[in-house]
Simulated assay, not measured.
Amino acid sequence: MCCYLPLPPGGRIMTTLSQTKEIFRRADAVCFDVDSTIIREEGIDELAKFCGVGDAVTEMTRKAMGGSVTFKTALTERLSIIRCSREQVNKLITDHPPQLTTGIKELVDTLHQRSVKVFLVSGGFRCIVEHVATQLSIPLQHVYANRLKFYFNGEYAGFDETQPTSESNGKGKVISMLKEKHGFKNMVMIGDGATDLEACPPANAFIGFGGNVVRQQVKEKSLWYVTSFGELLKELEKI
């Protein structure tokens, strides 16, 4: 998978591994996927297990992350199986809070110390992702994720289909919007899945992450593929 370095007027060049690392070292913004990247599990799979329909939903997640079905189709089908209530979601977060991946807090803290803006761009659910953001001292306005909808009695009522993260290429749309809004020159996307890979471009570089699960398509197409956040911390130490 090739992304692009910013160039003076006149053209663009394909990035190499060394250029990808350079973009990361001088990034002004880094976007992280959440499920199986910043946290160890897939939030929607954990919700499905909690609601007693884990096996059926796990298979759909595998297809979605592998890129064999569109993300919105997979999301719609999985949620139609789960049909979680507001109470179930809240109880999941209380009883089984998301588990941070080893090294992510140190990496985010280091990026913040270097005045790098950190964003969470997730196909998961905002109610869970906000909990993760708080643990990492990431402002909630830097969270882009899907919103579950509930009826007044708390029963499942669908999801907000206007959110860009509910669609394939949605993460790329978020990155384009952030670039336009903030003027970022070097944005990096880090994640484990096909929806993360396809966000580059518009991201200037993509780093595949296999610390929790290895998705072969992503590994094969990533110029830089890491299995621990310690590898990224070491790269920042070279500055």
Rank of each mutant, 00 (worst) to 15 (best):
C2D: 15
C3K: 06
L5W: 14
P8F: 10
G11F: 12
R12C: 12
E22G: 11
R25A: 10
V30F: 12
V30Y: 09
D35H: 00
D35M: 01
E41G: 04
D45L: 00
A56H: 11
V57M: 04
T61D: 01
M65C: 04
M65E: 00
S68P: 14
S68K: 11
K72F: 02
K72W: 02
R78T: 02
S80K: 15
E87M: 11
Q88A: 14
V89F: 03
V89A: 08
K91N: 07
I93K: 01
T94Q: 14
D95E: 15
H96D: 06
P98Y: 04
P98F: 05
P98T: 02
T102P: 03
T102Y: 11
L107C: 07
D109K: 13
R114I: 01
V116F: 06
V121T: 03
G123F: 01
F125H: 00
T134F: 07
S137L: 01
V143D: 02
R147G: 04
D160N: 05
Q163A: 11
P164C: 09
T165C: 14
N169Q: 09
K171I: 00
V174A: 02
H182A: 03
K185L: 10
N186F: 11
V188W: 04
A194L: 01
F206V: 00
I207A: 10
V218H: 01
E220C: 10
S222W: 13
T227R: 07
S228G: 12
S228D: 14
L232V: 14
L233K: 09
L233Y: 07
K238W: 06
